[in-house]
């Protein structure tokens, strides 16, 4: 399906080509090579498993940004019913880099919001590469208020390189729009689940990412800054993005250790782009389970726990009377 191969996938691709050739040869001749094909297939499977269970952070970055990876509207189409997109922030315009609307999920009405990237250059231009302007964040907040009014759960799907750095974005208060969302989402009186499906780019991601449950797909990334941006500042060389990716702790596997996310949702072998239906099913399962777990709490309790969860993120030292105590996420358990 995919036409964009990543460098570390090449050994697998080569093996798959060989298998294909062998198959063609078998069907055109009388020689039975079924066993050889089977053996090679097993080898390819083993190789795939080996490569994909030992991915370096920089390789996950490539997977997270893969153009054929399912995006927000793909998930909506695959696992949600009767989606109606709602448009505009009622102030300035409709930001196409963020989509939001009402749908049925697991037999209940849910408000879904997500960054929308394109799968090709034309779509990406239309969607501004999934980089929102302030009006995108303001639309998201307007829709979340609607969800709060009717007690609909909110699901946000995160997939953005970051909030757009442009003149108009600054003129209309990009910083304010994100800050307001962080504040308002922290006390929103309905349940919030956030899932990073691809790229979680800094404040632009967090702007719709304050939630009761934060989930990440296996090959998604979530970072305070892009590896390229970090490399340009700390190494003064954008080509050091690989080193920066390793240093930033931006993979789901690293972030769950910091207790910033709650769950890593598995992807099909080879990455989400290899099988949209399968990854969507896994996502649906996880969302359903988390939604039903949140149902056991009152709204008041949900909001209280959301505050406590964020309140305890951070790691630092406090020196007191010469005694050093390490404080931070380890004593972040809810009281």
């Amino acid at each position: 399906m995919s036409t964009n191969h990543l460098d570390f996938e090449l050994p697998i691709i080569e093996l798959e080509k060989k298998i294909e050739e062998l198959r063609r040869f078998t069907s055109n001749s009388r020689m039975d090579l079924c066993r050889e094909v089977e053996a090679l297939e097993k080898k390819a499977e083993r190789l795939k498993r080996e490569i994909f269970t030992n991915l370096a952070p920089r390789q996950r970055v490539q997977l997270a940004r893969h153009p054929q990876r399912p995006h927000t509207l793909d998930y909506i189409n695959l696992i949600m019913d009767g989606f109606y997109e709602l448009h505009g922030d009622r102030m300035f315009s409709d930001d196409r880099a963020i989509v939001g609307g009402l749908c049925k999920f697991n037999d209940e009405t849910v408000l879904v919001i997500g960054h929308q990237k394109g799968s090709n250059i034309q779509e990406n231009i239309e969607r501004n590469f999934g980089m929102p302007h302030p009006e995108g964040y303001r639309k998201a907040l307007r829709l979340m208020r609607l969800a709060e009014k009717f007690n609909f759960p909110v699901i946000t799907l995160i997939d953005t390189p970051g909030a757009y750095p442009g003149i108009g974005a600054e003129e209309r208060g990009q910083a304010e729009a994100i800050a307001r969302n962080l504040m308002e989402m922290s006390t929103l009186k309905t349940s919030l689940i956030s899932l990073v499906i691809g790229e979680g780019g800094s404040g632009g991601a967090l702007g719709i990412g304050v939630a009761d449950r934060t989930l990440m797909l296996e090959n998604a990334i979530y970072s305070v800054i892009s590896p390229e941006g970090c490399a340009a500042i700390l190494w003064r060389d954008k080509r050091k993005a690989g080193e920066a990716a390793d240093a930033l702790c931006l993979t789901a596997q690293d972030i769950i250790k910091l207790r910033i996310i709650d769950e890593v949702v598995p992807e099909p072998l080879g990455g989400a782009h290899k099988n949209h239906e399968q990854v969507a099913t896994l996502v649906a399962e996880s969302l359903k389970r988390n939604l039903s777990e949140l149902k056991s709490f009152s709204i008041k309790e949900i909001v209280r726990r959301r505050f406590e969860k964020h309140r305890h993120i951070g790691e630092f030292l406090e020196l007191r009377e010469e005694a050093i105590s390490v404080r931070g996420t380890e004593d972040g358990d809810e009281k």
């Binding site: 922290s186 304050v210 970072s223 931006l250 790691e315």
Partner: peptide, 21 residues
């Protein structure tokens, strides 16, 4: 947000905004 503390720094944005609420 200080990049040397990765996601811990990003989440300070959520933490400080929550306490302002």
């Amino acid at each position: 947000a200080r990049m040397q503390e990765g996601m811990l720094s990003l989440m300070q944005m959520a933490k400080t905004s929550s306490v302002i609420a």
